[in-house]
Amino acid sequence: MDTAISLLRVSKCFRAGKTRHKKQQTQALDNVTLKIGRGEIVALLGANGAGKSTLIDIMLGLTTPTSGQVEVFGVSPREAVLDTKVGAVLQNGGLLPDLKIQDTIELIASTYSNPLPVEEVLSRANLSEIRKRKVQACSGGEQQRLRFALALLGSPELLILDEPTAGMDPTARRHFWEQMQREAERGATILFATHYLREAEQFAHRALLLNHGELVADTPVAALLREYSSLDQAFSTLMKEPSCDSSF
């Protein structure tokens, strides 16, 4: 299987200030090594502060590791992003409140040399019926669907999603994952971080579990479900911490 994402001994430290005698650092990631093949659907799991968002930022080229090597489709993350091979849905930011949904998509589409048609993107993100709504009038879930639409414009080979269904009600979450299943069927590689373990249980082929910056498990979801009654139980056992919200 061709490799979409490759990390080799990746660590990331953030300066947290200094005491009288020495500088203090926070270890966000600690010696993480993994490979994700083209076409895989991978869930990134961990408690708040486990390092999930830092790992995603590194994969997107938004920050650089303190040590280690990162490649996305054989090049640096920034090169892959500039080549429109990567689309991302992050938790917040990046939207202009006074623009309408369709106007936002058209504006961002104008920055691409060969974007997907706006009508297709609206349909795939389930936004056609609210295309004239201003961003500031959208719910949190609707804004996440807009971010998803923007991520699709470049027809990416890799979708990286950081808590993509945050703010969505259960019905909206189900509709979102139905669309993501169609993206997977088109051949997209999908990596998503989530606190809703049922999403990972129902959609992911493989689970990465981060705990205090360390990759403590990299296992097929089916294998975890053979050993544990649910991902919620697997998570709480492997992390030795309270379970996440497993609602769907």
Rank of each mutant, 00 (worst) to 15 (best):
T54C: 03
I190P: 04
I58R: 02
S236G: 01
D218G: 03
K132W: 01
L210Y: 09
L158Y: 06
L225F: 13
A50T: 08
D162S: 07
Y196D: 06
R198N: 10
I108E: 10
H175D: 14
G154A: 08
E157H: 12
A217I: 09
S113A: 14
T237K: 09
S236C: 09
L158C: 09
T111K: 01
M239G: 01
I36D: 05
Q25T: 13
M59W: 05
V216I: 15
E106M: 11
P170F: 11
I41L: 09
L45K: 03
I5P: 01
K22D: 10
D103S: 13
E79V: 14
D169A: 06
Q144D: 06
E40P: 03
P220W: 11
P117W: 05
P170R: 12
G51I: 06
A109R: 02
L127N: 08
Q27R: 14
E163V: 09
V118P: 05
G51P: 09
E142C: 05
G167Q: 12
W177F: 15
S139W: 01
K132E: 15
A184V: 00
A204V: 02
L62S: 03
L153K: 02
L55R: 08
I5Y: 05
R147D: 08
G141E: 09
I41Y: 08
G46D: 10
A217Q: 11
L45A: 06
A184G: 11
